[in-house]
Each structure stands twice: as structure tokens, then as C-alpha cells.
């Protein structure tokens, strides 16, 4: 009798403590969660008129020629950057993280280095483990022909080859909201 009573009391107590701990944990999680709702999100802006992206042909570090038009039918992220541009350097690791997710959805990233110093570019890419294509715009001819004036600037090209979205300045490219915005382009009507 004693042991049964004791057992019941223990069970009740354990349940009570469990409930209490669950309450405490929930309270802590709510308190410590990021204050995301009130803060600025990283934004991609629609490009008015969604102009046709100008085609280009550039070489990567292995001297392979790549054309933008090779990727028609895909969403293409075209990022203009340089190793000596601090926000460019800052965003490249997040772009690599985004790439690991985006490539599963047939999204292509083409990072165009403005100016040419292959050794420094190679060293930088190795340090950050970048494995998406990096093209060299040695004389900045392509960079000057695109609607951009400063580094970094990134354009998102829709599957029809039009410039749909734009970001001036660095972004955290693995932000789920940004990835969702990019992938949403695939669902848009042709």
C-alpha cells in the first residue's frame, strides 16, 4: 500500500515538474528568439521593366569560356565582385552556403570578378572553399555594359533570361527569405 501510494505521488510529482520545466523552457525560448519580426530583412528589389540580360562570354580560372545564354531556362544569380572590395569578400561565404542549397534546384551562380589578378582570386576562392563558377572580367567591359555602378551588385536572371531582381551591396545570401525569393522566380508565369 505504501509503495503504491508512494509510486502514485512520485508519478504526479514527476508530471508536475515536467510541466513546470516545459513552461520554463518555452518562456526562455520566446525570450531568446531573434527579434526578427521588427527588424529589416535582406531585400531583393524587382528591376523595373525586367530588361533582357545582356549576354556575355567570359573565361573562368581554368580558361573555360562560359556564356550567360548557356544557362537559358535556369535562374541565374550574376554577382559582380572583386577580392579587394570588403563587402564583396564578406558576402562570398554566404553565397557559397546558398549555392549548396540552390544548385539542387538548378539555380546557377556566376560570380564575375571585375579586373584581373588570377593569383589573388584563386587564393581567395581557395580560402573560402568556393566552388561555383567565377569568371574574370579583366577589362571590365561586361561590368560596364550591365546596369551597375558599384561593387558588389547582384542580379537575379529569370528562366526567360530577363533581369528580375537586383541587390546593390552585400547580402547574407543564405537567408531563407532570400533563397525563397530567388526560387519563386521558377514558379512565375512565362
Amino acid at each position: 500500500m505504501i509503495s503504491t501510494g508512494h509510486k502514485n505521488m512520485t508519478e504526479r510529482s514527476v508530471k508536475h515538474i515536467r510541466k513546470y520545466c516545459a513552461g520554463l523552457l518555452s518562456c526562455l525560448l520566446i525570450t531568446l528568439s531573434p527579434v526578427g519580426s521588427g527588424q529589416a530583412r535582406e531585400l531583393l528589389h524587382p528591376v523595373p521593366g525586367t530588361p533582357q540580360a545582356q549576354d556575355f562570354e567570359l573565361h573562368d580560372l581554368d580558361s573555360n569560356a562560359l556564356k550567360l545564354s548557356d544557362f537559358k531556362g535556369h535562374i541565374v544569380v550574376v554577382n559582380f565582385w572583386a577580392t579587394w572590395c570588403p563587402p564583396c569578400r564578406a558576402e562570398i561565404p554566404s553565397m557559397q552556403r546558398a549555392w549548396t542549397h540552390l544548385k539542387k534546384h538548378n539555380v546557377v551562380i556566376l560570380a564575375i570578378h571585375v579586373g584581373g589578378n588570377e593569383d589573388k582570386i584563386w587564393s581567395f576562392l581557395t580560402d573560402f572553399g568556393v566552388d561555383f563558377p567565377v569568371l574574370i572580367d579583366a577589362n571590365s567591359k561586361v561590368s560596364r555594359s550591365w546596369p551597375m555602378r558599384g561593387l558588389p551588385t547582384t542580379f537575379i536572371i529569370d528562366p526567360q533570361g530577363k533581369i528580375a531582381l537586383r541587390a546593390i551591396g552585400g547580402r547574407e545570401w543564405d537567408d531563407p527569405a532570400l533563397i525563397k525569393t530567388i526560387l519563386a522566380l521558377a514558379k512565375q508565369k512565362k
Binding site: A40, R41, E42, L43, H45, C85, P86, P87, R149, G150, L151, A167, I168, G169, R171
Partner: peptide, 12 residues
């Protein structure tokens, strides 16, 4: 000369 939307910035 440059036009910036929300979150946009340039370094230079």
C-alpha cells in the same frame, strides 16, 4: 551617382 532602395548600399 547611384539610386539605392531599402537595404542597398555601396562601398568605395
Amino acid at each position: 551617382s547611384q539610386s539605392y532602395r531599402s537595404s542597398d548600399y555601396n562601398w568605395g
